[in-house]
């Protein structure tokens, strides 16, 4: 599995380029994604597909709670945790 920093980096690029307008720089690991309406209910589906494709993780339904998607850091932790559980 990738290093946490690398996951955050890829997520940051995804959010800046694919979710936002490409001119939005400065998304960092603490940017409140849900609170600022960056990841909304409609973007969530796309984000889950991105996680599957980029990191080969399928987020189980019981993990899909707001706390896990609050910012890039929490998403990266979720990816790492899910990946380690999938391997077992």
């Amino acid at each position: 599995m990738l290093h946490r920093d690398e996951i955050i980096k890829r997520l940051q690029i995804y959010v800046e380029q694919q979710v936002l307008d490409g001119r939005s720089h400065g998304v960092d690991e603490d940017t409140p994604l849900l609170e600022w309406g960056i990841i909304n209910s409609m973007e969530m589906v796309r984000l889950l597909a991105f996680l599957r494709e980029q990191f080969q993780v399928d987020i189980p339904p019981d993990k899909m709670v707001a706390a896990h998607f609050a910012n890039l850091a929490s998403i990266a932790d979720l990816v790492l945790k899910t990946a380690s559980e999938q391997r077992v």
């Binding site: 936002l20 307008d21 939005s24 720089h25 998304v27 409140p32 609170e35 600022w36 309406g37 909304n40």
Partner: peptide, 23 residues
């Protein structure tokens, strides 16, 4: 201002369902 900045700006003033999706 970028979309990121405007989303932040809206989030401080409006309900979440009213935050713009594009600029």
């Amino acid at each position: 201002p970028s979309l990121l900045e405007l989303k932040k700006h809206c989030a401080q003033r409006l309900p979440r369902y009213m935050i713009i999706d594009e600029v």
